[in-house]
């Protein structure tokens, strides 16, 4: 049962947790243990490259220093003066069609 559920949403789960993640249907992932198994006494003397095989499939190496910023601006060149654009989101406002908004809420249980 767990397998079928996970196959359905493979894409996003894979995107977030990497390929191996789709196999592990359990909610607890082993990576925490894997990492803490290492003895930390000689962590300053690790040969270079050993820690490269960290369980971070989704990241490329270049990303390791990516800026620590939560703020995310959706890139949009949208012209909100455009009548059509406004009509598209009208039902997201109380001035729009309430029944449509209600249906939106229902489809997802």
């Amino acid at each position: 049962v767990g397998r079928t559920a996970s196959r359905q949403n493979t894409n996003l789960m894979q995107l977030v947790y990497g390929k191996s993640a789709t196999m592990a249907t359990a909610s607890v992932h082993g990576s925490v243990d894997e990492e803490s198994d290492d003895d930390d006494d000689d962590e300053f003397f690790k040969p270079k490259g050993e820690e490269n095989k960290k369980s971070r499939e989704g990241f490329d190496v270049g990303d390791a220093d990516v800026e620590d910023c939560s703020k995310f601006t959706i890139p949009s060149g949208k012209n909100w003066k455009d009548e059509e654009m406004i009509e598209n989101i009208r039902d997201r406002f109380v001035t729009g069609d309430w029944s449509k908004a209600a249906r939106r809420g229902q489809v997802s249980e």
């Binding site: 949403n9 996003l12 909610s27 992932h29 971070r56 489809v107 997802s108």
Partner: peptide, 25 residues
């Protein structure tokens, strides 16, 4: 950033989210 947080949550807290797209919305 949200994706980064999800990964770190798994690593530190052992909590994995079930992530499902809702195509209609």
């Amino acid at each position: 950033y949200g994706i980064g947080v999800l990964r770190h949550i798994r690593d530190f807290l052992g909590v994995k989210f079930v992530i499902k797209p809702d195509p209609l919305t």
